[in-house]
Design a protein around this nucleic acid. Structure first.
Ligand SMILES: [Zn+2]
Ligand SMILES: [Zn+2]
Ligand SMILES: [Zn+2]
Ligand SMILES: [Zn+2]
Lengths: 133, 133
DNA sequence: TTTAAAATTGTTATAATATAACATTATGTA
DNA sequence: TACATAATGTTATATTATAACAATTTTAAA
């Protein structure tokens, strides 16, 4: 087979799954993804989870932990998922990635009472989005 | 049966499961809990999940979303789980609840670019604990 | 250009996490 | 009492995620 996925360094399955997540206006769950890509030859959970793992690892997508679902990264500044923040609507399914330099700086520099600094954080805000308010 | 669980307003199953989590030095997973309390008559997942749900709802415990595990609240100021922050060691299983008034204030007052404020947040820091460094 | 390592894929089975649905019992309050 | 609400017990099943192993493709070094 031709080397069809060299330029952007995503493999075939990774690209298929990334495209799906990237086009979606909602966070997608692994089995929703699996169902959607079966026509493209991705037929089993490990294929989906492996692609998701790699995409998370490289910062192309993020996992919304409270929803077990995935969104495409909308923030070129989030440095391979070291510093992520999201707003999550409790009414509709909407999730937005927050990119706020001040917030990122504040949390990246945060050190606890013992003076410990952390190399990564994930922050999830919950409330009502503009539509749902 | 006597009203054996009135004073502290936890029900029997809730108290059993809270005590277990409260005594634990590690976050506990639902099925670990289930296994541990079978001798006390709690035999099925729904019994555990219902107690966990109620304990989370009332702020007695918190769910560590990235681990699907539960810890007892160590912070009387966290206002029924509206504002939670944790430090999580990526090497051992250690989780500490962070209680930092400044951090809480900063995040509680945070508003995004559209001026939206959120009614709740959960923050997870990842790194190495003192022991593992 | 061979060739070997590393990454990716395909596949089957199963583990781990969580909820639906319904019957019963206990508790708080009018 | 009598009613509403909360909690419990139980069986089954849905959802999320990984183990294990074989085959293929890609990358990079010899
Ligand atoms: Zn991002
Ligand atoms: Zn909404
Ligand atoms: Zn707390
Ligand atoms: Zn540690």
């Amino acid at each position: 087979m031709d080397k069809m996925y060299k330029e952007n360094n995503l493999s075939k399955n990774q690209q298929i799954i990334f495209d799906l997540i990237d086009k979606s206006s909602e966070p997608l769950k692994a089995y929703t993804i699996l169902f959607s890509v079966q026509k493209k030859g991705i037929k089993a959970p490990p294929q989906v989870y492996r692609a998701l793992d790699k995409l998370v690892e490289t910062g192309k997508i993020h996992k919304i932990e409270s929803k077990n679902a995935f969104v495409a990264c909308r923030n070129s500044n989030c440095e391979i998922s070291k510093a992520t923040a999201f707003s999550i609507c409790e009414s509709c399914e909407m999730v937005d990635e927050i990119s706020d330099a001040k917030l990122t700086k504040y949390l990246t520099n945060f050190s606890d009472k013992k003076g410990t600094k952390y190399k990564r954080f994930n922050l999830e805000f919950f409330g009502l989005c503009k539509k749902c308010k």
